[in-house]
Simulated scan of single mutants.
Amino acid sequence: MKVLQINTFGNMSTGKIACDITKTLIEKGYDGSVAFARNSIQKNIPYYKIGNKYDVYFHVLMARITDRVGFYSKNATIKLLKYIDEEKPDIIHFHNLHGYYINIELLINYIRQNEIPVVYTLHDCWSFTGHCCNFEFIKCYKWKKQCINCPQLKEYPKVYFDNSKNNYEKKKNLFTSIPMTVVTPSIWLKNYVKESFLRNQKVITIRNGIDLNVFKPTYGTWVLENNLKNKKIILSVAGTWTKKK
């Protein structure tokens, strides 16, 4: 069995998950590789680099003007599809498809024509909204029926004009045109997916794994240094610390 994973990053954020899955596949005797656009890749991971920084810059520019994230990078995507033709993976595993690097229309149409099984791991909500990656902060649930007049144009992916209605319809048509197994890392996200236009796809929850040799109960010196002995400690960590986080 050969599995190709597609993601924005190679070795950070969701890219680490893609690399860890590929390493496990190889350890189990299967064949795996990662197609990514930005950042580097872990050592000894078979990979394909999607496009270059100029492809990303152009995608960012056009997306800012038109609010059409995921509908540029045509040349980079055509080259990726040629690579897929050569590799002939048995399964294609999507991670983040946003991030200014791939044309989802070309990708989905190719997969439908070639009848390649797809797993789509959702790390956010972009796949079933007309624009945003997360709506919980502002309690916007238009995506359950039809996105329009998006209130989060200044949030990632930041744009100047609203195209959320057309994006929603395009994504709905594309992501429901092929059978997929949709994987969510939490029940919280699974419940939202079941209310979206992805509801008729197979949806399962597989929680993100952690290294228990690293993440385990400890009693570091910083507890004593900060006078926290015998106190309850709640530690929150995020890449960027915003009001939303």
Results as ranks from 00 to 15, higher is better:
2 K>F: 05
3 V>E: 01
4 L>M: 06
12 M>F: 04
13 S>Q: 05
13 S>A: 05
18 A>W: 10
22 T>N: 13
22 T>R: 09
23 K>F: 02
24 T>H: 12
25 L>P: 14
29 G>Y: 04
31 D>Y: 07
31 D>M: 02
32 G>R: 09
33 S>N: 06
33 S>Q: 04
35 A>E: 04
37 A>P: 03
43 K>R: 13
44 N>I: 03
45 I>L: 07
46 P>Y: 10
48 Y>M: 12
49 K>A: 02
50 I>M: 08
52 N>E: 03
55 D>K: 15
55 D>C: 15
58 F>Y: 13
58 F>K: 13
59 H>M: 08
59 H>Q: 13
60 V>G: 05
63 A>N: 14
69 V>T: 13
69 V>Y: 11
69 V>I: 13
70 G>D: 14
71 F>C: 11
72 Y>V: 12
74 K>E: 12
77 T>I: 13
83 Y>Q: 12
83 Y>C: 14
84 I>Q: 05
85 D>Y: 04
85 D>R: 06
86 E>H: 10
87 E>S: 11
90 D>M: 01
93 H>Y: 12
94 F>G: 01
98 H>Q: 03
104 I>D: 00
105 E>L: 09
106 L>F: 11
108 I>Y: 09
112 R>S: 10
112 R>G: 13
117 P>Q: 02
119 V>M: 10
120 Y>V: 05
121 T>S: 14
123 H>W: 11
124 D>F: 06
126 W>C: 08
128 F>G: 06
129 T>D: 00
131 H>F: 09
136 E>I: 08
137 F>I: 10
137 F>D: 06
141 Y>P: 03
142 K>C: 02
143 W>V: 03
144 K>W: 03
145 K>W: 09
146 Q>S: 06
149 N>C: 14
151 P>K: 04
152 Q>P: 08
154 K>I: 07
154 K>H: 11
154 K>P: 03
159 V>T: 15
160 Y>K: 04
161 F>D: 09
161 F>V: 13
161 F>K: 13
161 F>W: 15
162 D>I: 10
164 S>D: 11
165 K>T: 12
165 K>E: 15
169 E>Y: 08
170 K>P: 10
170 K>A: 09
171 K>H: 08
173 N>W: 03
177 S>A: 14
178 I>M: 04
178 I>E: 09
184 T>M: 15
187 I>Y: 07
191 N>W: 08
194 K>W: 07
196 S>V: 05
198 L>C: 07
202 K>I: 05
202 K>N: 12
207 R>C: 10
208 N>L: 09
211 D>I: 01
215 F>P: 04
215 F>N: 02
216 K>P: 00
218 T>P: 00
218 T>I: 03
222 W>I: 00
224 L>Q: 05
229 K>I: 01
233 I>V: 02
233 I>S: 00
236 S>F: 04
237 V>H: 01
241 W>L: 00
242 T>P: 01
242 T>D: 00
245 K>N: 02
